[in-house]
Amino acid sequence: MKRVLSLFLVLTLPLFVGCAVTPQYNVSFDEQVWENKEQKVGVYVSAIPKIRSQVPGAGCLLCLATASAIHAPIAKHIKTQSTEDLQSVKAELIAKLRDKGMDLVVIEDEIDLRKIKNNKVKGENVAKKDYSAFGTKYGIDRLFVLDITYVGSVRNFANYIPVGDPFVSISGTMYLVNTTTNTYEMYEAINIQKFAEGKWKEAPNYPGLTNAFYTAIELAKDDILDLTVGY
């Protein structure tokens, strides 16, 4: 019996460990950081992901197939739109930082942010990943990262049934890490959700949702620029 209990504990413990991870809360940007003109700041902007679609809430295989089929025309249309305006945020950000007199190192290398080795030190606002290697490699004191992880359409479902209207979502994070202390000096989640204003059932071109898509892009750009260089 003890063996069974031990086995049960061993098997279920990892499930509870997953819940114990503390989320990183937002860290407001201290504009004084930009006052230090002696420092070198690395800027890394990850590639904008392909436009995707999600149907959260479709909780079984048949539900998922039904929800995907219902959402397919919208998903297909949104995927034809351009993220060119969102890609331009990198150039705008760099230009505005340079206007502030910052000495920038723009990192053009492809970096898989998920594969950076974990930081052994834990604590409040301590980065989960170890960015100290970037300081050495690029000769930077701070690293600014903009990581957009999702661009696309979303429609919530309760099993087979759509719950509410479809919307456009852009999400990701941006943060400034001190490469010496490995602490966040800014951490902001980007989470834009935009519905069509008024009607949205306008197949095949969905003008309301198309406008929502480009509105979401502009709102994301404004968020990124306001929170970093909008001071």
Partner: peptide, 18 residues
Amino acid sequence: YLNYDNYSNQAGVNGAMY
């Protein structure tokens, strides 16, 4: 004017037992 900025269309009934 219908200001959709703070409007969430997430209406409907969430859960259901079939």
